[in-house]
Structures are given as structure tokens and as C-alpha cells.
Design a protein around this nucleic acid. Structure first.
Length: 544
RNA sequence: GGGCCCGUGGCCUAGUCUGGAUAUGGCGACAGCCUUCUAAGCUGUAGGUCGAGGGUUCAAAUCCCUCCGGGCCCGCCA
């Protein structure tokens, strides 16, 4: 915010105290900005309270400061409401955009669906976090390449192929492919014997050796999986530039192994080729010579840097894989690739009230079912509150998706989440529907009230907090980007909605003297709210 | 045995990076507010040893150490 920047500049001039920008409290108990003066005592040779008084005397006040006062060791600054409202007036559809990214290219790896497995609520986290960061980075001037790194290689696909041989049904496969594959895969695990496992390994080996029949079948499974993923991701407003997965990168794996061998020390351990490191070595090749998850990831990283000209790679993958990525990044670093290029954007585990989710156990919750139940409940609410709303089913679905996305993005991604239907089906308070409803309310005013020019002299205390918050949107985006944490934006959006609703009930727009300025505040609030929702991957209904 | 993460009112949660004034909101509970732009809203009340102990500091939810509780991970799955 320009007010903060200018104030920091003025304060910085007065002493050698460093980093005033961080010292300045932007959300103090009194005023708009507050400066604690403890750090000035040495230079000013006095106590903190006297330092505060001295600073007030020395400071050349910028014109937008309407009041300044000391409170013990603090200096409190009050920003003139009218000055802020004038800044708000300048908000437009490119508000918050910047060239921070300077067109550097970031490859984001998220969603990562597995062939033959349904899109469960577990994949949701990666997808919504990744998609939000994708959009925020784009807005900040980065070129983002989103890759849905398909899980389609490894022994588990030997299992899937064997399972299909044993339990597969062509009719069921055409009717509901993903459910059927999931069924037979679960059945395989329930009945698994050492012989079956051996057969799965052998089958995968044949797949690796290029068995045409098996490859064709895998390809068929892959197509089914992808079309389902594309459909769900579309609903979630997540778009991918590539669906290259493990099978795609597999052919580059041996080259990657040679590359690592040429750059850094490797060892043979129990017949496997490893890069030794603490606390655990990274395995490049299994004792039978087969490539590993790690060698494919090394190949993938090299490919992305070379073919996509990536300057940065973000892996939006769950917490449990932390060690995997530490090992991967350490190895790349030993190969003289700058470690700073890589970041594991990790997130907490999603579990059910009765424990872990596992494809093998078959207790997965299908995302479609969550959408369905949430839509139904929202449809009931619409029928009760606004039965004449056009296209109700469609509206309910979009609101439901927004509710589910927001529930996930609202809290720090690092925290584990226990899936709970009551929470998911609550649409009041800090929820997606609350935000969308707030947006619809704003749109409703803009539709029904006449637009008249804003008179800045009508600015009052009512506009103060809302204006200040609107003006901190650009910093919020930068912070969201700095930490790769969508909840920073989500929390900002909640606060915006709260302030707007407060404004809504206290500042009537239609037919009052202040109509112009209030209409403008509603318009700008709606604009920023719309941007927030869009960046979070949610819809922006104009009525609901 | 080793490593990583989390712990904030009954429940969920912001703030921890970068120490600063009476710790942020929500759910649930209770009490109010629709003849006026959408009540999926707004206002108020009750509810807190910020897991525990020690240390650093003028100042600790925030930094350091120890411990406790929970989760996750530690080569031939990915």
C-alpha cells in the first residue's frame, strides 16, 4: 500500500534503525499503523516513551496522515479516510497484477491422478492448492506450466492388469470404467497372495519390455482415467498444460541415472545403485536393474528444466513424501543444479474420522459423491430461500464446488484434515457459500441502484476499515506467493466479506446523499471479491 | 533406533517466518435485529494457564533447550 511505503520511507530517514517496514504494525489496536519505539532508545539515548515523543517531533508527516499520537512507547498513525477512498477509486480489473515474476517460468506439479483409481477427496487437496497457486503466480507475471503427473507406471499397474485378468468384466468397464477398475484393484488386495504378487511383478516386467497387448490395455485404462480427471478438474476450475506422467518420463530415466553417476558419487548396496546420504540413501536402480520412482523424478526434473525452460519447480504433494523430495533435491543439488529451483509444497494428510484413507482398504470417498450431497443440500436451501432463482440445479452445483474448494483452502495447508460431513455441509460463517453470497449481494446492489458519481467529501468512518482492507489486496497476493500458501488469500477473502457485510448493513446505498461514494465502494468491493474467488478457483455467482 | 510436521476456549482456526499494546475469526450455546439495496446476513453475551517446564530479552503464542501428546516417514510400492 502506498501509504505504508511512504510512511516507512519517512520514518527510515530519522534514524539508523533498520527494517522499519517489518517493525511497523499494520493492524494495531489503535490507529492504522503503529510504531513500537523500543529500538530507538539506544540511538536517541532515552527511554521508549521519550523516543516515541521525539519521533513525533521529528517526523515530517505525509499529507494522508490525519492524526498522530503517542501511547506510551508507541506512535499511532491514523490515515485519512478520504485519501484511502480515493485510492480505492483507482481499483480496476488489473488490480493486484504485477510483473514480480518477470516472465520466469514455473512448472507446477499437482493433482497427479493415478490410472485406474478414482479421483478421491485426497486428490482434491493437491488440485485446489496447486490450481490456486497457479492462478496467483500467473497474476503476478509468471509463466506457469501446470503438469498433472499421471501415476501410470510401476508394479501396482502389474497388479491392476492381473486384477483385470482375474476379475475384469468388459461390460462393466465400458459402463463405469473407473469404478470397475477400483473394484477389481481393491479385490486384488483383499485376496492378495505371494503368487499373485509375483504374477503382478512379472506382468509389469512384460509391460516394461513393451508387450503390445498389455500396453494397449494400459493405454485404455489411462484414457478412462484422464477423461474423468479432466471432467472433475474442469469443475474445480483447474486447467493443465500437460498430462505427462511416469510412463512418459520412464524412457528418460536411465539417462538421468547416468547423469547422476557422472556428476556425483554413487554406490552399490545390496545390489542396488544408490546415492548415499543421511538419513536415508536415494535409490537410483533396483537390484534387478529396474528404474525407481526417484530415477523417474530425476528424469522429470531434468526434462522440465530443459524442455519447459523452467526456472522453478513446485511439487504440490502431500507431507508423507517429504523425505522423498529432500532426497531428490539433495541429489539434484549434488549434480550442480541449484537447490533453490525446487520446492516441495507439502500439505497435511486427509483422513476419515475412523482412520486412514486407502485405495487398498477401499474406504475412499468419491469426490463425485461429495459434490452430489453438497449440491442437494444447497438446492434445498435455494428452494427455501430463493425459489425463483433461474437454473437452480446448475447454480447449486457451482456453489457446492465452491464450498468444497474453500473448505480446503481456508486453513494452512500444513495441517492434517479430518474429513467430516457436518463441516463440509455447513454453509454459514467462514465458508465458500458465505463468500459467494456476499458477492451476489454486492452484485444485487449494482443491478438495482442507480450509478451516480462519487463525491469523496462524503467519505466517513464507515468507509475506513473496508478501504484499508481493499488496499492491502496486492500485498496479500505477494504474501500468498512468497509462502505458497493459499490460506493467506482465503483468510483475506473472509475478512473482506465480513467487512463488506458490515458495510452493507450500516451504509444504505439507494436514495441517500452518499449514494455515489457508497455505490463506488460496493463496486470496488465486488471487483476485489470477484478476483479473490476466481484466484481461489471458485465461481462468482451474481445472484443466489 | 533416527528424522520431519502439528499442539491456541467444547469443536475448528488466524497470528509463529520478521518477538512489541487488552491473542484473530468461525462452528456450537445463549440474547437481540427482516414495512427499506438478498437474514447463506448483522449485533451482543458466555467461553483462553496459546500442550508442560526451563532459558534468552525491556518485551515470548512467536526465538533456543528439555519433556509430553498426536500424525507422518525411514531402498527394491509410487
Amino acid at each position: 500500500m502506498k501509504f505504508k511505503t511512504e510512511l516507512v520511507e519517512q520514518i527510515t530517514k530519522l534514524s539508523n534503525v533498520k527494517d522499519i517496514e517489518h517493525l511497523l504494525d499494520v493492524n494495531p489496536p489503535k490507529g492504522d499503523f503503529a510504531l513500537p519505539c523500543f529500538k530507538f532508545t539506544k540511538e536517541f539515548k532515552c527511554n521508549p516513551k521519550q523516543a516515541a515523543d521525539k519521533l513525533v517531533g521529528l517526523l515530517e508527516l505525509p499529507p494522508f496522515i490525519s492524526k498522530i499520537e503517542t501511547a506510551g512507547p508507541y506512535v499511532n498513525f491514523y490515515v485519512d479516510t478520504q485519501a484511502m477512498v480515493q485510492e480505492v477509486y483507482a481499483i480496476n480489473e488489473s488490480y493486484g497484477s504485477s510483473d514480480l515474476g518477470n516472465n520466469t517460468t514455473v512448472v507446477m506439479d499437482y493433482c497427479a491422478v493415478n490410472v485406474g483409481k478414482p479421483f478421491g477427496i485426497g486428490h482434491l487437496r493437491s488440485t485446489v492448492i496447486g490450481s490456486c497457486l497457479d492462478k496467483v503466480y500467473e497474476k503476478l507475471g509468471y509463466t506457469v506450466i501446470a503438469e498433472n503427473y499421471l501415476g501410470d507406471w510401476g508394479t501396482q499397474y502389474g497388479k491392476l492388469l492381473v486384477a483385470y485378468d482375474m476379475y475384469g468384466d468388459a461390460d462393466k468397464l465400458t459402463k463405469d470404467p473407473i469404478k470397475h477398475l477400483y473394484e477389481i484393484y481393491t479385490k486384488f488386495h483383499q485376496n492378495e497372495t505371494p503368487e499373485m504378487l509375483e504374477k503382478a511383478r512379472a506382468t509389469f516386467k512384460q509391460l516394461e519390455n513393451g508387450n503390445k497387448e498389455l500396453l494397449a490395455r494400459m493405454n485404455e485404462f489411462r484414457q478412462f482415467t484422464m477423461s474423468e480427471a479432466v471432467r472433475i478438474c474442469q469443475d474445480l476450475n483447474a486447467e493443465f498444460d500437460s498430462y505427462n506422467g511416469e510412463a512418459f518420463y520412464q524412457p528418460f530415466a536411465n539417462d538421468a541415472v547416468k547423469f547422476v553417476q557422472s556428476k556425483t558419487h554413487t554406490e552399490i548396496s545390496d545390489g542396488a545403485l544408490i546415492v548415499p546420504m543421511e538419513p536415508a540413501p536415494l535409490m537410483l536402480l533396483k537390484s534387478n536393474g529396474a528404474t525407481t520412482y526417484h530415477s523417474r523424478d530425476l528424469a522429470t526434473a531434468r526434462y522440465r528444466i530443459k524442455e519447459y525452460n523452467a526456472d522453478k519447480l513446485l511439487y504440490i504433494v502431500g507431507n508423507p513424501q517429504s523425505l522423498h523430495f529432500e532426497q531428490l533435491f539433495e541429489t539434484l543439488s549434488r549434480c550442480n543444479i541449484d537447490e533453490k529451483m525446487f520446492e516441495h509444497v507439502k500439505f497435511g494428510l486427509l483422513s476419515l474420522p475412523d482412520g486412514k484413507i486407502s485405495t487398498r482398504k477401499g474406504n475412499l470417498i468419491f469426490l463425485d459423491d461429495v459434490f452430489k450431497r453438497a449440491s442437494q443440500k444447497i438446492l434445498d436451501i435455494i428452494n427455501e430461500k430463493n425459489p425463483q432463482l433461474p437454473n437452480k440445479e446448475n447454480a447449486a452445483y457451482k456453489i457446492a464446488v465452491g464450498a468444497i474448494i474453500f473448505a480446503d483452502l481456508k486453513t494452512d495447508r500444513i495441517k492434517d484434515v479430518v474429513f467430516d460431513w457436518d463441516t463440509v455441509l455447513n454453509f454459514e460463517g467462514e465458508t465458500g457459500p458465505y463468500l459467494m453470497y456476499t458477492h451476489a449481494r454486492a452484485c444485487s446492489i449494482l443491478r438495482s441502484v442507480e450509478h451516480v458519481p462519487a463525491v469523496f467529501e462524503h467519505a466517513s468512518v464507515l468507509e475506513h476499515a473496508l478501504s484499508k482492507h481493499l488496499l492491502s489486496f496486492p500485498e496479500t497476493l505477494v504474501q500468498t506467493h512468497n509462502h505458497n500458501k493459499p490460506h493467506i488469500l482465503a483468510q483475506y477473502t473472509i475478512k473482506l466479506a465480513q467487512l463488506f457485510n458490515e458495510y452493507y448493513v450500516n451504509a444504505k446505498v439507494d436514495g441517500v446523499e452518499e449514494q455515489g461514494i457508497r455505490y463506488m465502494m460496493v463496486q470496488k468491493s465486488q471487483e476485489v471479491l470477484k478476483q479473490c474467488l476466481t484466484l481461489l478457483g471458485m465461481h462468482t455467482p451474481t445472484e443466489m
